[in-house]
Design a binder for these strands. Structure first.
Length: 486
DNA sequence: ATGTCC
């Protein structure tokens, strides 16, 4: 049997791109890593595998704890991790959702071509930077009073439709239709709401960005046609999350777990993996609060998309509807959701934790909107600002292998600290413009250095593994044109 | 990721 050693962890090769940490000791399940040999070299460098093994200690974990091809070390649970736990005798773990609840990405298509845009790059990047609030701290597209924030938390994108920021068509092209009915705003703290109020419609910082891109490659013609994608087309990618509101919500519940469920916490190998027992009051309250934060993040991305439509209308002097600026899909990267999956031949309801992982349901799952019911859902995988991104569709093997999930990005290669030693923001920006015709505008040069293309793994390799495993199939590739960030 | 410390 082929094996690879990483410290005290031995990975056994199951088949191409599938590696297993066998169940032993206090583990409640085996763990699996989905990666090529090349990607394993990166994964082995940090605490990713230790955190993945720790995740198998969660009560009620089904099948395996799974690490996606882009996985890397996170808080308690790997970024790129999927863990499904029983909703009756299992648990729910804020650490396995992540601090940035419903960090996610959406793609908007247009009928513009790269030719239409050439010569307008500078004007467009400046106008987008001006119109879309970004960076750390407050300032959003709308200023929310106490009532508004409650409404957004309870109703998600339905609020945005009523307020004139979204169309019914936008709703129909969003995971969960942009709305979690299980949201319970009363379980989101006042402090979290106060932080969120000034950030409704704001990009934030770090790896969050808005990017205008052009489609460069089509891999599956029929699926691309269903998605409305073609070569040379201009599309817009928006990547952001729930800002201070989600972060505060995660913090609040981690603290409460320490106080109210110390016994379960003491049984886990890492305090950061904190979980509340299924059925407990705290599990119900966290789930309700997390769903509310999820709704907030969807509104956040919707308002940024609304502003983007206005900017395009201004720059190209055309109505955004004439430019057919339609939401392709909005996918969540950091969530837990009650879903029914087959485990050992039995249908069970599970909390599927996807932390830095994307839902990738194939054709036929009842959750899919009518537009994608026969083709599988769009999966959007952003690469770095110098590499571009991919559109995939949920693969037929995803339900068997990953509870219907795939990767969410390229995955970092080095820390932010190391990145700032290696790169200088202005140099990165100038080189991208001169060598690649990519126009970058950011609040902070440090952020550009931290997000330099060289700090990311090869997104092509991540997507190749997803495609070859059959969990997410390649549909199209894009390349950056304009990028704004915090 | 994040008013990068209550």
């Amino acid at each position: 049997m082929e094996t690879r050693e990483f410290g005290d962890i031995e990975l056994r090769r199951v088949r191409e791109h599938v590696w297993e940490i066998p169940q032993e000791g206090e583990m409640n399940a085996p763990a699996r890593v989905l990666a090529s040999e090349a990607l394993l070299d990166h994964i082995g460098d940090d605490k990713t595998l230790e955190q993945l093994r720790n995740a198998t200690h969660l009560p009620g974990i089904a099948n395996h704890a799974i690490c996606m091809p882009d996985g890397h070390q996170g808080y308690g649970f790997p970024v790129g991790g999927v863990g499904a736990t029983d909703t009756t005798d299992g648990c729910i773990s804020p650490g396995a959702v992540g601090y940035d609840i419903n960090c996610g990405v959406r793609m908007m298509t247009t009928n513009l071509t790269y030719e239409d845009l050439r010569g307008h790059e500078e004007e467009l990047v400046d106008a987008l930077f001006e119109a879309v609030p970004s960076g750390l701290g407050g300032g959003g597209v709308v200023k929310g009073d106490a009532e508004t924030i409650e409404d957004i938390l309870a109703r998600g994108m339905r609020w945005a439709v009523d307020a004139g920021y979204a169309t019914d068509d936008d709703l129909a092209h969003c995971e969960d239709e942009g709305f979690r009915d299980d949201a319970r705003p009363e379980f989101v703290s006042q402090k979290a709401k106060d932080r969120g109020r000034n950030q409704i419609g704001s990009l934030g910082s770090g790896n969050h960005f808005l990017e205008v891109q052009r489609v460069t490659d089509i891999y599956r013609d029929d699926v691309a046609e269903s998605f409305g994608l073609e070569a040379d087309q201009i599309v817009v990618l928006i990547h952001c999350g729930s800002r201070g509101l989600g972060h505060q919500t995660c913090t609040d519940y981690l603290r409460r777990i320490e106080k109210e469920h110390k016994d379960l916490l003491d049984d886990l190998p890492d305090k950061e993996l904190a979980a509340a027992p299924a059925g407990s009051e705290l599990a119900e309250e966290y789930y309700g609060a997390m769903c509310a934060a999820i709704n907030f993040a969807w509104v956040n991305r919707q308002l940024i998309m609304h502003r983007t439509r206005e900017v395009f209308a201004d720059v190209f002097d055309r109505d955004w509807r004439d430019m057919e600026m339609r939401l392709l899909y909005d996918v969540a990267h950091n969530i837990a959701k009650k879903e029914v999956h087959e485990v050992d031949g039995e249908e069970r309801e599970l909390y599927v934790h996807r932390k830095g992982a994307t839902r990738a349901f194939p054709a036929g799952r009842p959750e899919l909107p009518p537009a994608y019911a026969d083709v599988g859902q769009p999966v959007i995988i952003p690469g770095s600002m110098g590499a571009g991104s991919y559109v995939l569709r949920g693969g037929d093997r995803s339900l068997d292998l990953t509870f219907g999930s795939t990767a969410h990005g390229a995955g970092r290669l080095m820390s932010r600290t190391k990145a700032k030693q290696e790169y200088w923001g202005e140099t990165v920006r100038d080189e991208l413009r001169e060598q690649e015709k990519i126009y970058v505008k950011a609040q902070s040069g440090a952020t550009v250095a931290e997000e330099a293309p060289g700090v990311y793994k090869d997104v092509d390799e991540v997507v190749r593994v997803s495609d070859e495993l059959g969990i997410g199939d390649k549909v199209a590739r894009t390349f950056p044109v304009c990028n704004i960030k915090g």
